[in-house]
Design a protein around this nucleic acid. Sequence first.
RNA 1: GUGGCUGUAGCUCAGUUGGUUAGAGCGUCUGGUUGUGGCCCAGAAGGUCGCCGGUUCAAGUCCGGUCAGUCACCCCA
Length: 419
Amino acid sequence: MSVNEPLPGTSDIWEPELSDWVLLENKAREIFSRYAYSELRTPIFERSEVFVRNLGSETDVVQKEMYSFNDRGGRNLTLRPEGTAGVMRAIANRGLNQGEEARVFYFGPMFRGERPAAGRRRQFHQVGVEAVGSDSPWMDAECIAMLTHFLRELGVSGSKVLINSRGLPEDREAVSHALKEYFRPKLPELCEDCQRRLENNVWRMLDCKNPACGQIALGAPKILDLLSETSQDFFKRTCDGLAELGVDYEVAPRMVRGLDYYIHTVFEVTHSGLGAQDALAGGGRYRITLPGDKRCHEGIGFAAGMERLLLARESLGLQSGAKPETDTYIVSLGEAAVAAGLRLAGELRQLGLGGRVKADLSARSMKAQMRSANREGAGIVLILGEDEIARAQVSCRNMRSGEQVLLPRVELHDWLKKQ
RNA sequence: GUGGCUGUAGCUCAGUUGGUUAGAGCGUCUGGUUGUGGCCCAGAAGGUCGCCGGUUCAAGUCCGGUCAGUCACCCCA
């Protein structure tokens, strides 16, 4: 508990774990680009209303999880709790022509004031995509297919795609009504949370984790059956699209996602290697009115938790090993040689020879410098001592084979190229 | 926000029913004759036992509080 420790739910990311993060980012760029998505970077904080209007003021995220503060000008700002709102704001600001599609992906830190647990942090990272401007169910299918493609490329096997539909806003009343009718008589048998939910949030009663409630929820009317024909048709065509694209999925009739803006398709990808927080990614279709734009836009998107992707990979034994800190290590014996070593290191870096080059500046004993070279995984050690400097030579040692040659300085570049 | 478990060297952990100068392994540093790594050997450095308070002649060991970590709940990525 020193001031040097990062705040609860935040952490420093060092090598070698950092290489896994870079791998994730590069894979995201590579795969999403193939689907013609472009990277977008939006600010990490926004005016609070950007999130409130997008997520809905009644959602848990807005009610109790936002990191909000007033800046010096008295504006109420918030550290982004998710990526979609900022992306929508950016698209609105730039403008979207009639019929134009915006396909973007992003990744970066998100912030929620929650109690940390396995796979849940206060500063966590998401990689997400948004495709705005298409109201085709095929788009939903392709988006989900892209997500499974991404997971496959990362080596994350054993995940499960769950999909459901929330229908259109105009279907909601009928669904809520039917659910209330079903649950009301069973109220005494339900948990406290669900008793409260009956009026506030009936839909959530469907996926309560309490075993007793779960049993009762099994008998509840299915959302899908209660939706309008238009909504049912949209869902069916999304499923057809998934089949067309060869995506394995499961219909989860009781899955309800927490964010209010979703319409039609909602989906989630779960993985068994994650602990209690088993959602790897989640998303869905939304309808949104961009501020300053009278037209209504539809979009589909998802966000995947980067920490959770990494956890899933870890559970499959996929974390990458430690990289060597150094490729070429220059040992210098004596103060005069240190200057020569530094000069040689600079020369190699300018020429791009020797990979990661490190000159030992300590003037310690040779044994000590060799130990360091070995510990850092150096493949090549170049030795500069009094003899070498006097004769314009350099001792070149291959640490893997143990072979060592004494070369004239002018031959060093060629020797390095051959290693 | 609520609850369970945990908190001793850089890391992983020992530390018996409270009893002298708190230990191990790994890692680090320096040596094992003049300029050579990995193996081996020797030595060294490194800890206010998370913090505060209490009980006691005596607390790393017991009690309370607090902070932190971890897992779970709510919810989500």
